[in-house]
Every structure is written in C-alpha cells, then in structure tokens.
C-alpha cells in the first residue's frame, strides 16, 4: 500500500512536466492547427539560455523567468517565420508538423554546436530532499509540481477570464467568425505559441535540474507528453493536463510492477488501447475538419 502511494506521488511529480508539455502542445494545436514537435527542444534551448545566464551571475529565480521568456519569443518567431507563411488548410497539417520536426533538428544541432553534447549539471531552483509518505522526493520535484500547478492555474484563468484568452477559445472554435468580430487572429497565434513554448520551458527547466542538461533531453518527456495528449484528446486543455499526470503515474506504476525496462513500450500499448476504445481521447471531441 505504501508502495503504491509513493509511486503515485512521484508519478504526479514526474507527470507535471508531461502535463505542461501536453498543455503547450494542445494550446498551439488549437490556435494554429500545428502539432509542434519542436516544443520540447524550444524548452531545452531556453533552459540552456538560462544556464548561460546563471553562469554569468544571474540569480536562478531570474533565470527561470528568463527561460520562459526566451522560449516564448522563440515560439513566436517560429510561428511567424515558418508556420504562418504556409497559409491555411487541412492538407497543411502534416506540412506544418514536418516543419517543426525540421526545426527541432536544427535546434538540437545548434545547441550541440553552441553548448556541446555532453550533459551539463543544472542547478535546482530549490535544492534538497524531503520525505513524503515515506519516500524521499527532491524539493526540485516538489517545486516543479507547484510551479506546474501555478502555470496551469494561470492558463485556466487566462482562458477563462481574460478577453484575450476568451478570444483564443473563440478563434479555435471558428476562426472566420473571430475575424468577423475584428479579433486579431495573428496576435492570437503569437500568444498561443508564446504560452505553449513558455510552458515547455518550465517543464524542461525542472527536468534539467532533476538530472542534467543536454540537447536531447526533451525526447523522452515529449513522447510521454504526446501519450498524455492521446489520452486526453488533441483539443482538450484539461484533457492534456490530466493525461500528462496520468502518464506520469502509469509510467511509474508500470515501471515498478511490470518491467522497468519496457516503459516506453507499456506507454505505447496503453495509447493503442485507448485509441481503439476512444479514438478522440477521454476528454477530447472529434473535431470537424476545418475548411
């Protein structure tokens, strides 16, 4: 019993990163129909920038916010320069997706060239460990979870109450109607990419502090975030968050009870089963194709 509780607690802590990435993926997809494969690398890049800032004497807390800003600006630039010129249309879903894969490649290579491919130690925002329900958990993980929840709370508030957030939901539902009201769809896309990539930066910042920082660190968490998105549905923000946390817990439990060697495979199997049972995920809806 104690086992399972500790597994769940650390699973939730791990899941916070997946949930943040998944939320970022969904926000960007809803606003621009782009599945952003570079979102993890954008977060990694921002975390490298934070590392350089810390090395230059910037306090860790300030570097944290710097990372968010860097990721957000890179996201805006990516959308403006690479996605927007493509135009609109259902057939461009994959073109946009493949472009972000290309962007991810360039970013990884760039980080490797600039900062090197060897893992770099990354300082935690809050060092130390505490005991929770008999398990030792790093304060970094606790902080990660807390910041993830704060960020999610902010996202919920932003989309629920801020005119811009409401406009973003409206634009996701019917972009032409949004344009008819004079809502600036270009700016909405920029904000979505800023938010999505900013959330990824938070996730990568804490993941780096958990182990170390290297250009390829985003691979595995991004995969789990996608698994979370599958569970929750590609268009549901709460679905993505719940899916991300669920994958964290599932990953932990499966790793413990079934096999630590086949974690990815187990996660994959779950995705396939979920798709069989509920093609749109548990909270998502099958969206009509946009014209």
């Amino acid at each position: 019993m104690g086992d399972i509780i500790s597994l769940i607690i650390s699973g939730i802590a791990n899941g916070s990163a997946y949930a943040l990435l998944a939320l970022g993926i969904v926000i960007i997809f809803r606003s621009t129909d782009t599945v952003n494969f570079a979102i993890g690398d954008t977060g990694t890049l921002a975390t490298f920038a934070a590392l350089s800032a810390i090395a230059a004497g910037v306090p860790i807390a300030a570097a944290f916010f710097l990372a968010i800003a860097v990721a957000g600006v890179v996201g805006i630039a990516a959308e403006r320069l690479l996605i927007r010129p493509l135009g609109h249309g259902q057939h461009l879903l994959f073109v946009a997706l493949v472009i972000t894969i290309g962007l991810g490649l360039v970013m990884q290579a760039g980080m490797g060239a600039f900062w090197g491919n060897t893992p770099k130690p990354f300082p935690p925002l809050v060092p130390g460990w505490i005991q929770v329900a008999g398990v030792a958990i790093s304060l970094n993980k606790i902080a990660a979870t807390v910041f993830a929840l704060i960020a999610m709370g902010f996202v919920a508030w932003f989309f629920g109450y801020m005119p811009f957030g409401i406009a973003m939901r409206a634009s996701a539902e019917d972009p032409l109607a949004a344009r008819m009201l004079g809502l600036n769809t270009g700016r909405i896309a920029s904000i979505a990419w800023f938010l999505g990539c900013g959330l990824a930066a938070i996730a990568m910042f804490f993941l780096a502090a958990e182990s170390s920082l290297n250009p390829h660190i985003a691979h595995s968490p991004l995969f789990r975030a996608f698994a979370g998105v599958f569970l929750g549905g590609l268009t549901s923000m709460p679905g993505a968050v719940i899916g991300g946390f669920a994958i964290g817990v599932l990953d932990n439990i499966a790793g413990h009870y079934i096999s630590a060697n086949y974690r990815d495979t187990i996660v994959f199997t779950v995705i396939v089963v979920v798709l069989f049972v509920r093609p749109a995920g548990f909270l998502g809806s099958i969206r009509k194709e946009r014209v």
Binding site: P163, I166, A167, R169, A170, E173, D174, A177, A178, L181, G182, L183
Partner: peptide, 17 residues
C-alpha cells in the same frame, strides 16, 4: 461561439472592436 457563454460571446464583440 457555441462553446462560449452568452456573456463571453458579447464580450468578444466589444473586445474585437
């Protein structure tokens, strides 16, 4: 915007302008 409330729909009319 069907998923948005009456109030939110109205609000966007003003915000958009």
């Amino acid at each position: 915007f069907g998923q948005l409330s009456v109030r939110e729909n109205l609000l966007l009319g003003g915000f958009g302008a």
